[in-house]
Amino acid sequence: MIVFQKQTQPDKEIQLVVLFGAGLIGSSVCNKINKLGEYSSTLLPFSWNNSAQSRQDANKISLYLSSILASYSTDILSSGKIAFIWTAGKAGFTASETDWHDELANFNTVLSIVKHIAEQFPEPLLLFHLLSSAGGLFEGQRLVHNSTPPKPQRYYGQLKYDQEKALEQLSRRITKTIYRPTSVYGFTGASQRMGLISTLISNGIKNKVSTIFGSLSTLRDYVLNDDIATHIRNNLFIKHTNEDVFFHLLASGKPSSIYEIRCFVEQVLGKKIYLQFHSTPETDNSTDITVNASALPPAWTPISVKNGIRCVHEKILSGSDLS
């Protein structure tokens, strides 16, 4: 996990940003915060695989944050804000029951840090930004709207649902923002977990076969990780009230079939890509998930999937180890 501490003159802005999970979206959020040029970052250990260790790490993180907050003047504490961001997610669509328990335990450990800080320091406004998943919550549902009830179909979706519920139960003093992105694509390095689009591009460049766990007709709504990161960063700095839980459905509002994505990727690469289709009950991911465009938040400005594919292609070509 990473702690960003404001280095310029303390004011009413966010003083601390505590980010858990620097994956596809998390690392992009880190970049956006770093680009502001106002925050220094510190990397602290947080174990994702050992719950006993993660609880110990959480205690150390709490102490570290407390020491920073204790050094602030009363004025800063009364007007400043601390933001916690959860962009972690080791378990994907194929998460098992064990993954579900482990990740939920990690999330609850992080919530305990927030609770501890809230109890120790009653003054600064606390913000919690949770990255959930529209794909997990609304699997198999079409034209999802803000009022559509989540119906998780697998452990991954249930995990996201449980995380949202756990966050909602936190004190009303904490402003909660829950982001529900649809199918996220992007590229932050070959070592990171890759989604459908970056896999198709990467394998296409290498003339390798990509395996699709669905069908060519599967409809999804694709959003670029960079767009989500920009939206989260922008949301950190808007005026907050601690009244409600805010839900942001992050989608493009335009469904795309895998066939359409394949055509775009082939156009960008200028050659045919190789596909094979494989599905077992555990990996089957062929249900449609689409979002109603009118449900999107007002300040959300995603780029088209075609342009996004071009961006990812550029990133893969310029910054990756394609070996």
Partner: peptide, 9 residues
């Protein structure tokens, strides 16, 4: 209670 392993045959 979760139900997984759905498959379209």
């Amino acid at each position: 209670m979760l139900v997984i392993n759905f498959r379209f045959h």
